[in-house]
Design a protein around this nucleic acid. Structure first.
Lengths: 408, 408
DNA sequence: CGACTAAGTTAGCGCCATAATTTAACACCG
DNA sequence: CGGTGTTAAATTATGGCGCTAACTTAGTCG
């Protein structure tokens, strides 16, 4: 019940954070522009930017000529100030990428997992291995790495020990961070759900830019969503909000792998789509081993096969109804659709989804919402994970590691 | 894109707000307790409270003897500092209530609406009438009324003109506040959706106390919800978030009055329940005119009639699945169930709802959530509406009307 | 080459929170 | 019955921060 801090010179930190964030997102800016954009006085901007320059967080980036008057000096975040690592822990492999502060990728490593149901110990070993690889490849010192963001399948519970729960792959309370510590990793770690990191990436660099209320939905093998409320990824009470895939869309309907009936994922997850296709063709044939190839075949067949076309149309109908639920509950200004299955089904499929959404959502809320495809590729989870330490930097208005501050 | 203010001496206001809120919610407190609870220094507490006392917002409320030491002086918000009015605009009538700052009801007025589909002009006339009545009955001056909160059916769009949209009763962009101004009402007006004001009331004084992430669901003639995220009622991009009643629960299912198919409301709204009961009995009988009486009869029949019992059980199943969707998406720490229909179906019906929720929600999120019945009666909408001006007072740390401040 | 214009910096001021100190009230103990 | 210890409130001293306003710098145009 003590919601707010004691607010003393945290005010200064807040202003540092505001300016730093503005520079990070809106490219090089002059002090004058910063003053106008943030509402801070010119004096304060000068004062704070001087401090940021001294801390090497930002650097001057050239002049802009003016039509009379002193030319403005542009400032920007120094890409070389630090590096960040983003890791995508998937069900089949671990992807590790290293970026500078302008989010330019300097190195990447892709490590396969042997087991089908990923074993935590194996994941940890591969992660540590990949981490060492990218640091070596990019030839950076470990101390220059601000932090390591990790997107994991399942929900992340933050407490005294950070635990990962992933009901569908059999992870129950896996203490991933402390396991990585045991492997000799000393860098600051930032964990979050993979769908949420991907959503974060779309919000910062993709189709979500500029929106304050958005939902990024992901349709792939699993079905999930990242909800952004007021510019922040919404986590809920125990960080497991946004489990869109397991909301009930057909009461009493198909059995889902989570144990319930009628979940959205049971209909529009890749497995659900393929299974409905199989049943529509009379139930012959084995379960597909390569979902992506099988779905591509289904999409290709839709041109000639009425059955395949109907399966895709039904899928769009379900997805649209599911999105309508999000529209009614969250009233976002934007919905971004991602995930490999959604991308595979393509643009005109999206039109059917939109139509179904319009039919199922309340008119007022629907009219406020735009529905778009995601803009980022398969690296989005890793990129989004890498934004986690950057977000911490921006929020603190400087490197959280150093607390001693020298004033200009 | 300029999210934060210029933050100068707004810091002072913030501290005033913190202290005032603490005193409002947690009863009489000594300065020392305030210091501990808020984290502010004793000096600051003394300083700020002196100001608040001078502004007549708070008063001393007796001493508490101590076991050695100076006795602590208790402070509390002065209930007589100002009054607030809460208005519940329903589909059948307008309820107006006047409170002091301790939320003690001083006067109430209940005005019926003649038309079935409430005409905005009639609503405005009755509202103005009721407002004058309660001010006269309670014998308070108009200038002592801090503001008037109004809970309306439908969504409230805040812009240059505040507009009310209520698709189900045919209101489209009704400018209720300016219509009230035309009736000579000069008091500050605060509009919000009735479900949200009721939710606010439960959060402040009912089953939601202490929770930061909660959903208050309402099952009555209509079905709605108020979502509280991080202590704040979540509004979304255009204030129409939380439309739980029109989320799809049975894809392709029953026709709903909103035009879509398979909405939750079509199954568990009073009309939906009664219609399912009618169909289960063979479709005989006319549509009920008094829903509340008809539902009471259905509940009474459930003891002897298997058909009636099944209708109630099915209802609990649908509601449970709907709540599970909320649990999966919002991950709240508490769900509060209200609305006259839910109350009519009673406590053991709630157990069936919980069972269904457990079956449909993900285990981790479900375990973090408690499900409870609401604690407030039929006045909750009006009480919640009255909290709106109070919330404005608390947030501003003082009367927003007076800006000139004198320091002690 | 000097006046004009715009960007950025320096100086002065007020405000606010913290920490240390003082004042106040009461209980216990000898 | 007065001294001493304890606890709480009030007061004073100190330092930080951001705003306003004046000033300096650096170009361009006539």
């Amino acid at each position: 019940m003590e919601p707010k801090r004691t607010t003393v010179r945290d005010l200064r930190r807040h202003n540092r954070s505001t300016l730093l964030s503005k520079l990070f997102f809106d490219g090089p800016l002059s002090r004058h522009e910063l003053s106008q954009l943030t509402g801070l006085s010119a004096a304060t901007v000068s004062n704070v930017t001087a401090e940021l320059v001294e801390d090497r967080l930002i650097v001057e980036a050239g002049l802009v000529e003016s039509d009379g008057g002193r030319p403005r000096v542009l400032l920007r975040v120094d890409p070389k100030y630090a590096h960040v690592v983003g890791i995508d822990v998937g069900e089949t492999g671990v992807k590790v990428e290293l970026f500078d502060l302008s989010m330019t990728r300097l190195a990447a490593a892709d490590l396969q997992l042997n087991s089908i149901e990923p074993d935590p110990a194996e994941v940890v070993a591969r992660t540590a291995e990949g981490l060492r690889q990218v640091i070596e490849t990019a030839d950076v010192t470990e101390s220059s790495v601000l932090g390591v963001g990790i997107g994991v399948p399942g929900t992340v519970e933050k407490g005294t020990r950070t635990l990962v729960h992933a009901q569908t792959i059999g992870w129950d309370a896996v203490p991933l961070p402390s396991m990585l510590r045991d492997q000799g990793i000393r860098l600051p770690l930032f964990l979050d759900n993979g769908a949420k990191t991907q959503g974060q990436a779309e919000m910062w660099f993709g189709a979500g830019r500029g929106a304050r209320h958005a939902v990024i939905v992901l349709v792939g093998s699993g079905v999930g969503a990242a909800v952004i409320t007021d510019g922040q990824t919404y986590a809920g009470y125990s960080s497991s909000a946004g489990e869109w895939g397991h909301t009930t869309i057909v009461y009493g309907g198909r059995q889902c792998r989570c144990g319930a009936r009628g979940c959205l994922e049971a209909y529009v997850g890749a497995e659900g789509i393929l299974d409905r296709y199989r049943k529509a063709r009379g139930g012959r044939g084995a379960v597909d081993t390569d979902e992506q190839a099988a779905l591509a075949a289904l999409v290709a067949a839709a041109d000639s096969s009425k059955i395949a076309a109907k399966v895709l149309d039904d899928t769009a109908g379900y997805v649209g109804a599911g999105i309508a639920n999000l529209v009614n509950l969250f009233n976002p200004e934007r919905i971004v659709i991602g995930g490999w299955a959604a991308l595979a089904m393509g643009g005109q499929w999206l039109d059917v989804v939109k139509k179904s959404t319009a039919e199922h959502a309340l008119r007022h809320a629907y009219e406020q919402t735009s529905i778009e495809l995601c803009q980022l590729g398969p690296d989005a989870v890793a990129v989004g994970a890498a934004t986690l330490p950057v977000a911490a930097l921006l929020e603190a208005g400087g490197d959280p590691r150093e607390s001693s501050r020298s004033v200009a």
